[in-house]
Design a protein around this nucleic acid. Sequence first.
DNA 1: AACTCTATTGATCACTTGATCAATAACAGG
DNA 2: CCTGTTATTGATCAAGTGATCAATAGAGTT
Lengths: 213, 213
Amino acid sequence: MSSTPPRRAARKAPSERAAEIAEAARELALERGLAAITLRSVAARVGVASGLVAHYQPNVDALVADTFATIVAAETAEVAALLARLPDPPQRLALLLDTLLDGARLDVTAVWVEAWTLGRRNEALAASVRVQMDAWQAVLQDVVEAGIATGQFETPDAASVAWQILGMIDGLNAQALVRWDGVNDRGVHLARAVEGMVGAARGALVPGGLPQT
Amino acid sequence: MSSTPPRRAARKAPSERAAEIAEAARELALERGLAAITLRSVAARVGVASGLVAHYQPNVDALVADTFATIVAAETAEVAALLARLPDPPQRLALLLDTLLDGARLDVTAVWVEAWTLGRRNEALAASVRVQMDAWQAVLQDVVEAGIATGQFETPDAASVAWQILGMIDGLNAQALVRWDGVNDRGVHLARAVEGMVGAARGALVPGGLPQT
DNA sequence: AACTCTATTGATCACTTGATCAATAACAGG
DNA sequence: CCTGTTATTGATCAAGTGATCAATAGAGTT
């Protein structure tokens, strides 16, 4: 019948507590957005006083920026790891498009979109956004350049094309955030568009590999 | 040497004052974002007491939603009017892409992106966003269908392609909001991608009309 | 000129936020 | 067993928010 268990949180090693705080902030961001990260909300989730959260971060802006970076870097690494297993550049690109459009990461997309806006008033976050965008672009550029090397792609400016593809993916995902219905064959349309941009053969990027049963 | 001019704002017709408030909110949104719309900030800009702003709107959420709609509807109408002067569908589509990517409307893009996020907590705004997205999509679908009618485009699903193009434009513009550099030939790449999606002839959508001097 | 309607005020309330800091208590090392 | 370090607390501050409403005063009508 003990109503409120222990009144004081167990003392932990700084690194451990810092990790708990980071994890709580991450969950909050994915569930309710970056704007839901406040000293009190994070503290409550960890089960700790608000002052402790402040103790571990110079300010809230930094916590938001770090949280954004953590979430997005994990996504980038995850997708990059997926791609690394496929040797063929067109297959890699097809898998990338397919994976990013499958709707399984809409919570991350919401974080991206929010970061674009919040970055206007949070310089640390803005810097983080630029870093993470560069990382994504690098992943894409790698694939495009690999395809050029094998002769399966042809484009004079892999970097620009990579940026372009990234922008398209972001836009389509942001759209999916607001409007699910109305758009059919998102993957197919995008694949077709990207084929044109990288100079791949028609159908080379069709998601499911070979069409038809 | 009169320090504070008139202490009380001149009494005006409700419709006139409402228009002033709407205009002030619009300017604030374009300059500092939708989040900068508060009872006090709008009131200060109009030169009026905060209570008066509240008097003209049921709540702040509604003012934000209305402001968003005003800004975006004006953009849509402006671009639609531009297009109406060109008879040829490929030319219309090329002009549309070129216009939306020219960077002259980045403030509006910022409002769009912010609305996607704020819509999560402001139902009126979310509804407004859906309406305005539909309006944009309709403009695009019109052009695509016109091209199909003349035989210059060929695609089985004009509606989906229109959504897709819209998503791509939004994404590229959002990207430009954060990163200006690094991306060359945005218009050309997008034109190439869209040509593929609508089934237009290669080069049919190149911005400047005929390439080369 | 008196009157009525209502646009306008601005003080006020309840809340939320980030930040600060003296006080407390748990742990480690001597 | 003591003692010093520091993780942790929670009250507190100032700032900002949306909303409310009695009081005020301007303008049109009679």
